[in-house]
Design a protein around this nucleic acid. Structure first.
Length: 459
RNA sequence: GGCCGAGUGGCAGAGUGGCCAUGCAGCGGAUUGCAAAUCCGCGUACGUCGGUUCGAUUCCGGCCUCGGCCUCCA
């Protein structure tokens, strides 16, 4: 089986073949750390985490870098507004982002480089661009000269004339061409800055990714990913400067972009204000349910986020964990994920299809009559879940978390269950049902099983 | 205006030229003291108008609607 991925550059699905199977390289644009990440920001982290898991299962070494943008004008604005150094802000939100993503089951990438740790490398790359004629210095700025790169526009499929027509931004006077973009810009004394051959300044938006890719992954990487809105201008510009800095070497062999998460069909974005942060969602919902909801739509499709989306995800996971709970005492036969699950993911990360296969495994586990069958299906289910980053908890922990966060008085529930058991033994079913109603009023459902009565928090 | 996407059953959401997605919800049955859970069964779904075809939700064209990028944005 081979992995097929959709390449934004060619707009087709292509077989993925790494340049060097001994060292697969992937770079995904990470967050600008000046605020809480919203659930839309989490989508690429989760999606590319699945890809990372898939690649790791197949190749001996996968180097996955996801950066933190910790120098940026929005950070500067927050720094001024709060009267604290930018590092106070970026450190805080980097830690929060890490914790939030961990709660979503996102594995730490191999590398998490920060922009501010790579200023010399950025300067070096800018110097290379100046040297080979693709950039120029003007009024303390250094700009990339877009017309110097014939391939400009290939990723976003647009040509310069059209862009000039549609331009909504005033063209800075020091630009040779309206499309030229900033590699380095001067900083006033009140702004963060670094000494450079062009005076004290700070990097433009795009150069950090190219410099960090060059530093950690090499001139050519296998996969470059990010959100759909990064195609233009960010990735188009990265592609231009990266290619030119390396005298025409391929910058990224495969470009992947996830679709948007929407609220009421409109893109979730900080500027629109229609956001819900991962942080606040985690207060009421297990991270695993959020992850399941994110993966319930194909990564290139839009995904409309609502309470209903999350509720359905949680209910579906409840069912899977209930199946696993039934076989807690049975040791799973260690197993690879079933071919059907792998085949689904191999087809451009078709996570909804993979989840349908997981549902089939849950059913098979529930149907299984013999211990060997149960052990086998349990192993397959857990292995399939591992690829998606779900179903790795102990069922008791999954249901226990729901109990804990519900605020239900567990001791009282247990006491009532004991009382009901006594009534049932006495065949006083009216009293037993009355007690159950009392328990139900607490928001708790009880289940009588062969091995005793269990309870769970109702939805 | 330019360039891109998308419209699937009550909801979410895959996919395919002719046969089953799947999950959630709902209905019926089994089971249960009654429930819950589980299992079994159940829905003439593919925006619209044409075209190609023996046959289209799936291919082609027009139209309508919605969204995205062109500015910071995952």
């Amino acid at each position: 089986m081979s992995l097929i991925l959709y390449n934004t550059l060619t707009r087709t699905k292509e077989a993925f073949t790494p340049a060097d199977p001994a060292r697969v390289t992937m770079y995904v644009c990470g967050p600008t750390v000046y605020n809480y990440a919203h659930i839309g920001n989490a989508r690429p982290a989760v999606v590319f985490d699945v890809l990372f898991r898939l690649l790791t299962a197949r190749y001996p070494k996968v180097v996955y870098a996801r950066n933190y943008t910790d120098v940026d004008d929005k950070i500067n604005a927050a720094s001024k507004a709060q009267g604290v150094p930018i590092k106070a802000i970026t450190d805080k939100f980097t830690a929060i982002y890490r914790a939030d993503m961990a709660a979503l089951g996102v594995l730490p990438p191999t590398l998490e480089p920060c922009a501010t740790d790579h200023i010399p490398q950025m300067i070096g790359m800018i110097e290379a661009l100046l040297k080979n004629g693709h950039a120029y210095a003007a009024e303390g700025h250094v700009l990339f000269n877009v017309p110097s790169f014939a391939g400009y526009g290939q990723l976003s499929r647009r040509n310069l004339d059209e862009m000039i027509d549609g331009a909504r931004v005033e063209v800075a006077p020091y630009k040779k061409d309206p499309a030229d973009f900033v590699l380095w810009k001067p900083s006033t004394p009140d702004l963060p800055g670094w000494d450079s051959p062009w005076g004290r300044g700070r990097p433009g938006w795009h150069i950090e990714c190219s410099a960090m890719i060059e530093t950690h992954l090499g001139e050519t990487i296998d996969i470059h990913g990010g959100g759909h809105d990064l195609i233009f201008p960010h990735h188009e510009n990265e592609l231009a400067q990266g290619t030119c800095a390396h005298n025409g070497a391929t910058y990224a062999r495969m470009w992947m972009h996830n679709g948007f998460l929407t609220m009421d069909k409109a893109k979730m974005s900080k500027s629109l204000g229609n956001i819900v942060t991962v942080h606040e969602l985690l207060e009421s919902t297990p991270g695993e349910a959020l992850r399941w909801a994110i993966l319930s739509a194909h990564y290139r499709q839009p995904l409309d986020w609502s309470d209903e989306t999350v509720a359905q995800a949680k209910t579906t996971l409840d069912r899977a964990y209930r199946a696993l709970e039934q076989v807690t005492a049975i040791t799973a036969i260690p197993n690879a994920a079933p071919d059907a699950v792998i085949a689904a993911l191999d087809d451009d990360l078709n996570t909804p299809k993979a989840m349908a296969e997981i549902a089939a495994l849950v059913k098979a586990l529930n149907q299984a009559a013999t211990t060997p069958d149960k052990a086998r299906f349990k192993g397959q289910l857990v292995a399939a879940g591992r690829l998606l980053g779900v179903l790795q908890q102990d069922p008791t922990a999954w249901f226990g978390a729901a109990k804990a966060s519900s605020g239900v008085d567990a001791a009282e529930v247990e006491r009532l269950i004991a009382a009901r058991l006594a009534a049932r033994k006495a065949r006083d079913f009216r009293e037993a049902d009355r007690i159950r109603d009392t328990i139900a009023a607490m928001g708790v459902l009880i289940e009588d099983r062969a091995d005793g009565t269990t309870w769970r928090v109702a939805e």
